[in-house]
Amino acid sequence: MRVQLKPAESGDRSEIARLIHLSTNTWYQRHGREAIFPAGPDSCELFVDIYHRLDRGHHWIARDERGVLCGSCFFHPRDTHLGLGIMNVHPDYFGCGIAAQLLAKADELAGDLPVRLLSSALNLDSYALYHRAGFAPYAVYQDMAIAVPAQGFSFPRLTRGRVRAARPEDLPGILLLERELLGIERRNDIDYFLNDASGLWRVAVWELDGGIGGYLASVAHPASRLLGPGCCHSEEIALELLGWMLDRHHRGSVPVVLVPARRSALSQVLLQWGGRICELHLAQVKGRAQQPGGVVMPSFLPESG
């Protein structure tokens, strides 16, 4: 099925939010799972707003010959790679090749840069789509939902360092850490987190002797209650960052964090904290990707596979 691809416009905001809400919830519910977005379609305007703020002009939509919005994909151009963000197809158009056409746009926008994405391991249809397009998985993450008591969350000190709220002047240290552990740079993303005035985002850093050995961002919104992106040098640092953020940003809620599946000791502690494994995600790349070092905690808002 051929459709017209075009950059999204500001007037498409509500329509795109409804598509994200309907497409994502429909897929999960058809496969016997709960809706990912229990709040109304308006809640998904969060994704449109943040992605347009970060990457205006790089959100493409697909319309059929009648003008019906049948597909949407956010692209995140960075100096080191192109991030493939949330991609949605209207349920009435599943299997019509629209996702493949949006994916071809990624090749056009990336040029010679690698294309990175994070996808659910449950969705074999999308895995097959990415596989046919030349993507290969390079890391596996466990989604862990952690119920945080309303009275707060206590966690042990495991290192000589300290966790504190991040400041704008921490930007160079965080960028250096991501370069070291992931081989990517996302200056605009990190700068956005650090300077957010809405209260939706918080960022913490772990430091020792003036050096940053870990950071963790977090968003609290009806459409996304997520810890990440973040990365650090060790599991102990990861636990201190997670404990600090759970206690200060997610009291009385159930946020989700993605942790490396190969970090079994970290997962075991999170299970002891009351966490449960609710899904698996695959970091995939078309091109080259550095094998993640330390502990990497990716997110979907924005993409950070």
Rank of each mutant, 00 (worst) to 15 (best):
K6V: 06
K6Y: 07
E9D: 13
G11W: 08
G11H: 09
D12N: 10
E15D: 13
I16F: 09
H21R: 09
S23A: 15
Y28K: 11
Q29S: 11
R30G: 13
R30K: 15
R30F: 11
G32Q: 09
A35L: 08
A35D: 05
F37I: 08
G40L: 06
D42I: 04
S43G: 14
C44F: 05
E45M: 12
L46A: 09
V48A: 08
D49Q: 09
H52N: 13
R53N: 07
L54C: 06
R66A: 08
G67A: 04
V68I: 09
C70S: 03
H76R: 15
H76Y: 14
H76K: 08
P77M: 14
R78V: 04
D79W: 10
M87L: 11
M87D: 05
H90L: 01
P91F: 00
D92P: 02
G95E: 14
G95A: 14
C96P: 03
I98A: 00
A99Q: 06
Q101Y: 11
L102T: 04
A104E: 12
A106V: 11
L109S: 00
A110Y: 03
G111F: 07
L113M: 02
R116E: 03
L117G: 03
S119A: 10
L124Q: 15
Y130D: 03
H131V: 04
H131Q: 12
R132K: 15
V140A: 08
V140C: 08
V140W: 13
V140E: 11
Y141I: 03
Q142Y: 11
Q142A: 06
A145L: 05
A145W: 01
I146W: 01
I146R: 02
I146C: 01
I146K: 02
Q151I: 11
Q151H: 10
S154Y: 02
S154T: 05
F155Y: 04
P156D: 00
G161E: 00
P168F: 00
G173N: 03
L175M: 01
L176I: 04
E180D: 13
L182D: 07
I184P: 03
R187L: 13
I190Y: 05
F193C: 03
N195F: 08
N195D: 11
D196S: 08
V205S: 10
E207Q: 13
L208P: 07
D209G: 13
D209C: 07
G210M: 03
I212L: 14
Y215V: 10
A217Q: 14
S218H: 12
S218N: 14
S218W: 09
A220I: 10
A223P: 04
R225L: 09
L227I: 06
C231N: 15
C231Q: 14
H233S: 09
S234I: 07
E235I: 07
E236T: 05
E240F: 07
L241M: 06
L246W: 06
R248P: 06
H249Q: 10
H249V: 08
P255R: 05
V256W: 05
V256D: 04
V259L: 12
R262S: 14
A265Q: 15
A265R: 15
Q268A: 09
V269T: 10
V269M: 01
L271H: 06
L271S: 01
G275T: 03
R276Q: 12
C278W: 01
H281P: 00
L282D: 00
K286Y: 00
G287Y: 01
Q291F: 00
G293N: 01
V296T: 01
P302A: 03
E303L: 15
